[in-house]
């Protein structure tokens, strides 16, 4: 994973699309599917994950010299769990209505493989700056994926987006979308869309490369 000459912009941008934690790496799905029945919940969950990921990456990369490798995983887990507790209480105090909706799923951020994975494979090996940038990229990518999923499910399943009524009162909602099967099906179809787009991009790039070869 560590590149020879890490480029901050590259590190940031890769998490958004190419290495998107959800669409490309299929990580961190447990909390994601459960809470994305509306865009607001998705935003809140994404925001909470954002905070935990960035804060943990920062702390881990700044403490990496003092953490012996034998206990590194345990230490990461403690750090992550701490920040999850912090965001849990903060949400409960600041946005109680949303906290009630997300309920039991906030604590589950602890076992989001994506967060632990970033600590192990990136933050513990890079400078603070890079680690934070990487975490930012991944977190934004995660947030984006959650929002996409939450938007589709909310728009079809409720006729609203972020609580805004989109189709007027006569819309017949597709209830399945806010139910568990809708989560599975939507994410499956979004993954399909992602790989279709990725393939199209790759084909386009190949065609461009060919044209360049011909041009020279």
């Amino acid at each position: 994973m560590p590149t020879s000459k890490p480029d901050a912009y590259q590190e940031f941008i890769k998490g958004l699309w190419r290495d998107n934690p959800v669409f490309a790496q299929v990580l961190g799905m447990c909390p994601m599917l459960a809470v994305t029945n509306s865009a607001v919940n998705a935003l809140a969950m994404g925001g909470a994950t954002f905070f935990v990921l960035v804060a943990s990456s920062f702390l881990v990369s700044s403490l990496k010299r003092w953490i012996p490798k034998q206990v590194r995983i345990s230490t990461y887990v403690i750090i992550i769990a701490t920040f999850v507790t912090v965001i849990d209480y903060s949400l409960q105090a600041l946005l109680p209505a949303i906290h009630k909706e997300l309920g039991a799923f906030i604590p589950l951020i602890v076992v989001n493989c994506m967060i632990l994975g970033r600590q192990e494979s990136f933050a513990s090996r890079h400078s603070i700056g890079l680690a934070v940038i990487d975490a930012l990229g991944m977190a934004v990518g995660f947030l984006f994926a959650l929002l996409a999923l939450g938007s589709v499910r909310e728009i079809l399943g409720n006729g609203t987006w972020l609580g805004l009524d989109l189709f007027g009162p006569n819309f017949e909602p597709w209830v399945i979308m806010v139910l568990p099967p809708g989560g599975f099906l939507t994410l499956g179809l979004l993954l399909l869309l992602f790989s279709w787009l990725a393939e199209r991009r790759q084909k386009l790039a190949e065609r461009l490369a060919e044209m360049e070869v011909e041009g020279t």
Binding site: P181, G182, L192, S195
Partner: peptide, 21 residues
């Protein structure tokens, strides 16, 4: 081909989830 892997598995899970309803 594009469906093979996680996308298909998620859709299968979705159908299973419908059945469990």
């Amino acid at each position: 081909r594009l469906l093979r892997g996680t996308a298909l598995n998620l859709i299968i899970a979705g159908i299973l989830s419908m059945a469990f309803m």
